[in-house]
Design a protein around this nucleic acid. Structure first.
Length: 740
DNA sequence: CAGCCATATCTTTTT
DNA sequence: GATATGGCTG
């Protein structure tokens, strides 16, 4: 393998610097996956490192699979022994192997966000928390944040203070932990946290892995949190051959605990670190890159770097404004069809990105109408559908009967006449005897509180016991048995509605996945299948071979690239989101949204189209927003279309811009702005000078606040609450409201 | 105990 | 608009 010819100087340096800590600052499209792949190959080929001594951590299973196959293409069979997986999968693997040392049973369940929510609901009930006053979210996100920082209840309490709410959070955290422990279950955060605890407390386990992992690589390092950093630090502590690759400008998971300081301070943690910058972009046109640069430079507190490219100038970026989200979607679907016909390329060369999953529906409709094959990534996860969750609960209960949550979920599904009251009786009996709910159910016959329900409960437990005795059978066989013998399938068959048919299809699909799992794994187990199901990301599930346009959130697009990219919904309040605009954190959240925009722009290789709608249905009512403030950060020299003139923003919450805008003309200093083409198709209504939340004045009623703006077709209906407390709905053109 | 209908709240973003 | 919850009735 001739590495010198395949890589540029910087990339080559990154590949050959195999010893000690290395920080690779890899800008978008600078070939970081290439570097990681060849670095691994180089270790194996040139430095004779045994493949099983190398670990690479990626962000998604898909990325892991891709890297693995690319490594194998370069070094052949040996590549299979490189440990390539996500943080979460790696941790499960470690925890399964050393479950007892970590204080768990080998068959522990993994709770997803839904499960955590259900547990928290029960916790709040126990603590007599008024669900009107507090949402589960409040506690769960506080706990998750604490776990991301490796803080237990006591430590977290120090951060929270000592007011009553803090005490409540503390109690909730403790109770939540107890419940998971009793159920032999771990949530997503636990997977990392408990692994770190294991490595910290158990010297043998720590040195086992430190000796195993002589070389470590971490991709998407900018999105690691404190716990993940600690995990990496511990695992790589034997040799300190740790290579992390990231781009602080692409850090978009702060809300999930990602600690951007991990990248900004890498050199602080590892003073002997080698820092390598990859700044040559091989992906995008000069125009697209120029736009990306001019957007991201509005962020402060970033590692200074400027991406450059030898690629051609390329097409201008299109900015198209529409009356409604409906027209916006119409345009995008139509444009894909037109471009595809002209370019004669594949649907997979196109992607539509948006800020929120809710935007996908309307796009989907238009893609169906235009007869364009598409796939939506994200949104309602396949595995979070009710019927799938039900069947998974059966499987979890069979593998791990301590899993109270799953047992509760299925005990009366389908209906067996075992109600809440009977379950509670069994639960009380179990708790009194220090047993799990399932054990409590097993002893219903000797539970004096349970009388008539005892026989029904017995038939349930013998059903489960029957399944347990068949755990040695293949995973699809077990699932089929559960579906048939529990009566679940039959119930849906009898129902015979469109809905029930769809559910049955989903269950078939689930069995198909089990078949694939069974065939692809050397040692398939039900527990292993459940693990895969729990940790699968939506993007991991896309069928190969078919040709389709991808529709997904900007977050989902991380790490991907396409010839043509549309970013829809470029409106203030949507992107950047309302939360970011109103946040009083000195622009931190806004900066993260800007990074998200940067990620979106840099997904595009050749064409980029930004679209916005003046009105959009949000939560059942029409909202009017002004164009995204981010649009102004792209020089008009780089764009064409009918971008509305920077209007006087109607939001009074707009944060003052820290840097004044200077057009970045470095790549095309001689181009003149192109006259905007009109992409919009409807006659514009008189634009409103105010938006929802603004204070307005009415000639007769005085001052008030705008509660909602509804699109009434020819005119806008505006709902205003006047200071007298009176609410009035009026037509905008008629009422002549003025911004106060 | 189950099934039906009214209502309230929701939204970022996800392994 | 969609979904989760709650209250009511049979």
């Amino acid at each position: 393998m001739d590495y010198d010819k395949l890589l540029n100087d910087r990339q080559l340096e990154a590949v050959k610097k195999t010893k000690g800590p290395v920080l690779i600052l890899a800008g978008a499209g600078s070939g970081k996956t290439r570097v990681l792949t060849y670095r691994t190959a180089y270790l194996i080929e040139k430095e004779n490192v045994a493949p099983y001594h190398i670990m690479a951590i990626t962000f998604t299973n898909k990325a892991a699979a891709e890297m693995k196959s690319r490594i194998s293409t370069v070094v052949g069979e040996r590549g299979r022994d490189v440990w390539v997986s996500t943080f979460h999968s790696s941790c499960v693997r470690i925890l399964r192997r050393f479950a007892l040392e970590a204080g768990y049973d080998r068959n522990f369940s993994i709770y997803d966000a839904d499960d955590s929510k259900t547990v928290m609901k029960a916790v709040m009930k126990k603590l007599n928390v008024d669900p009107k006053k507090f949402k589960e979210r409040t506690f769960l996100s506080a706990i998750s944040k604490a776990k991301d920082e490796l803080k237990g209840p006591e430590e977290a309490l120090k951060d929270w203070g000592h007011d009553p709410v803090a005490m409540l959070k503390f109690k909730a955290y403790k109770e939540y932990e107890d419940r998971l422990k009793e159920s032999n279950a771990l949530d997503f955060d636990d997977l990392i946290v408990k692994t770190v605890e294991l490595l910290r407390t158990n010297k043998e386990v720590l040195s086992y892995y430190q000796e195993k992992f002589e070389y470590m690589m971490v991709d998407e390092y900018q999105d690691t949190n404190t716990a993940q950093f600690e995990l990496v630090r511990l695992l790589s502590g034997g040799t300190r051959n740790l290579c992390v690759v990231g781009d602080d400008d692409q850090s978009i998971y702060k809300f999930r605990g990602a600690n951007i300081k991990n990248i900004l301070n890498f050199e602080h943690y590892f003073p002997d670190a080698t820092v390598i910058r990859l700044e040559q972009n091989y992906r995008s046109t000069k125009t697209i890159l120029s736009a990306a640069n001019s957007v991201i430079k509005n962020n402060e507190a970033r590692k200074d770097k400027t991406l450059w490219t030898e690629n051609e100038e390329g097409e201008k970026i299109k900015v198209c404004s529409f009356e409604s989200a409906y027209e916006e979607a119409d345009y995008i679907a139509n444009d894909v069809a037109v471009r595809k016909r002209k370019a004669n390329d594949s649907y997979s060369d196109y992607a539509v990105l948006y800020r929120t999953n809710a935007q996908s529906r309307i796009l989907e409709e238009k893609f169906i109408r235009e007869n364009i094959p598409y796939k939506i990534v994200g949104g309602v996860n396949f595995y979070s559908r009710k019927e799938i969750k039900d069947i998974i609960a059966y499987l979890k209960a069979i593998v791990n009967p301590s899993d109270d949550l799953s047992v509760r979920r299925i005990i009366n599904v389908p209906k067996r006449g075992i109600g809440e009251a009977s379950v509670e009786k069994a639960a009380v009996f179990a708790t009194a005897n220090g047993k799990s709910l399932y054990e409590g159910l097993l002893s219903s016959d000797i539970n004096p509180a349970i009388k008539s329900a005892a026989s029904k409960i017995r038939s349930f437990t013998s059903l489960i016991e029957g399944f347990k005795s068949r755990l040695n059978e293949s995973v699809p066989t077990i699932i089929r048995a559960v579906l048939e013998e529990s009566g679940y399938q039959n119930e849906l068959v009898i129902e015979n509605t469109d809905d029930s048919k769809a559910r049955l299809e989903n269950l078939e699909e689930f069995i198909n996945k089990a078949v694939v799992y069974q065939n692809d794994n050397e040692e398939p187990t039900l527990s292993g299948f459940l693990e895969e199901v729990a940790l699968i990301a939506d993007i991991d599930n896309l069928p190969e071979g078919d040709d389709y346009v991808l529709l997904m959130t900007l977050h989902g697009a991380k790490g991907l690239e396409f010839d043509t990219v549309y970013i829809a919904g470029m409106e203030d309040g949507l992107f950047p989101g309302f939360m970011a605009i109103t946040a009083s954190d000195g622009g931190e959240e806004l900066a993260e949204e800007r990074r998200l925009f940067y990620v979106g722009i840099t997904r595009a290789r050749k064409n980029l189209t930004l679209t916005l709608a003046r009105t959009r249905m949000v939560r059942g009512e029409y909202q009017t927003e002004s164009p995204s403030r981010f649009l102004k950060e792209i020089s008009p020299l780089l764009t064409e279309g009918n971008m509305p003139a920077p209007s006087v923003s109607s939001r009074k919450t707009e944060a003052p811009r820290k840097k004044s805008y200077t057009p970045d003309t470095s790549y095309n200093p001689f181009k003149k702005p192109v006259a905007p083409k009109n992409f919009g198709t409807t006659i514009a209504k008189a634009p409103l000078s105010y938006a929802v939340g603004d204070r307005v004045t009415h000639r007769k009623f005085g001052e008030g606040v705008v509660l909602s703006i509804t699109d009434g077709g020819r005119d806008f209906e505006v709902l205003v609450r006047f200071d007298g407390g009176e609410e009035k709905k009026m037509f905008a053109s008629f009422a002549k409201l003025e911004k106060a």
